[in-house]
Design a protein around this nucleic acid. Sequence first.
DNA 1: TCAAAAACCTGATTTTCGTCATATTAATCC
DNA 2: GGATTAATATGACGAAAATCAGGTTTTTGA
Lengths: 241, 241
Amino acid sequence: MKPLPISSSDRPAAVQSTSLRQIPLLNFLSLQEQRELLRELTETHYGKGEYIFREGDPAEYFHILKEGNVKCVKSSPSGKECTLKVLMPGDLFCCEAAVFDGACHPGTAQPMGDVSVLRVSKKVYFEMLRRNPEAAIEVIRYLGNRLMEVQEKAKILALDRADQRLAALLVGMAERTGVREPQGIRLSVRLTRQDMANLIGVTTETAIRIIARFKKSKLVAGTASRLIIRDLARLKNLAST
Amino acid sequence: MKPLPISSSDRPAAVQSTSLRQIPLLNFLSLQEQRELLRELTETHYGKGEYIFREGDPAEYFHILKEGNVKCVKSSPSGKECTLKVLMPGDLFCCEAAVFDGACHPGTAQPMGDVSVLRVSKKVYFEMLRRNPEAAIEVIRYLGNRLMEVQEKAKILALDRADQRLAALLVGMAERTGVREPQGIRLSVRLTRQDMANLIGVTTETAIRIIARFKKSKLVAGTASRLIIRDLARLKNLAST
DNA sequence: TCAAAAACCTGATTTTCGTCATATTAATCC
DNA sequence: GGATTAATATGACGAAAATCAGGTTTTTGA
């Protein structure tokens, strides 16, 4: 596909046309439609400690992650928190909440560092989908995949021990964000023991103890900002025992 | 909406046109489209102990549950099983798997008694969606809701104790399938202790012990085929503590 | 560069739940 | 309606993970 022929005066603030071509859910649109949607997109930057939206906020927009990582967090009345997913650039988020008029966000979207987010109003987006069945089908595919992902996660939470859940998490992260390095596979997402704990439904202490065991048996190395998977095969094996 | 004007010679085997109007995902179609889709639908009956499809089978059809209850089951390599959801009439199933060419079913669909299932090939269904953006948007809504449901379930599995998970399950079942009775709310779905155990990720013994405690404190009564919720408010309270 | 804040670590103790073994009751089907 | 199977029940024991209560090390930011 060729670059969009859009003059700089055509496009809003900081949304670069090049970035759009990397977003799967905006393919399947004619150039004309892409240009129109581009006009409706706004880009916002967030830093650590801020919120993109919180659980219970009214859901008025579709969000697309452009840069950085965002975690989707749900919390229970007792104050405990559970991280559903770490989003990567290109991921849609909160399409599931954007579904009904007056719906609220079922979870909080929290930047894991500096991030950049694209936003378009539900109304505009749905109108675009109505005109572009092919794009609607793409959204169906995306949601179907997300559904399968969460179902797999629910299965693991329901059936597996803590160490297997952690192994499965690391395998998944390695596959989605790993980069080859001499010592093994480095995760390009910063992930603290606490992050891991929240992702697999255990306490931070438990995650720390398990990672310590993994270190001893040369499965992983490093800490949050530089986590290395040293033996993917054995981790995979542990996850599916 | 008026009844479909279809002569009995027009329609395949046992698919009654009246049943279709109760299926949310077939609304938003013109009469013409409904009639065409009807011709492509086939109905199949299954009994207990049979499988509608199994984990790993190639996914070639969209399924719609017409009558009875079906459970979606996933199993781990070690042989343990986890029930993701009890489907009710009108539910789509395995749309999530019907998403890619050559995809396989991520779980097994198991009748919980006598059931009747409608089926349409992925190809025909997608073509229909391409012609009917409104129907595609309806599928997006459906998937969005399913996604929110599973996310909520994952949160509960990750954060709550067994008794709270069971309470949450019973509250949900009461709301989806409960019928008022003098002694309380009766679940219209047959649900054994083992079913509950598989739905909340504990062993059967644990589910039995918890239900026994619930009985003592007058929260529930009865067994599988006649399960009564006697104090919904207190169950809700327990679930969200 | 130094102080403060995160992140990481460890041990002791308790709670929760799984496992195994064995009854008892209820449902189903010739 | 009585045999057979499925479902429910209970106890004793152990393993897994939470909790609480200290630490140390690393990272961050003024």
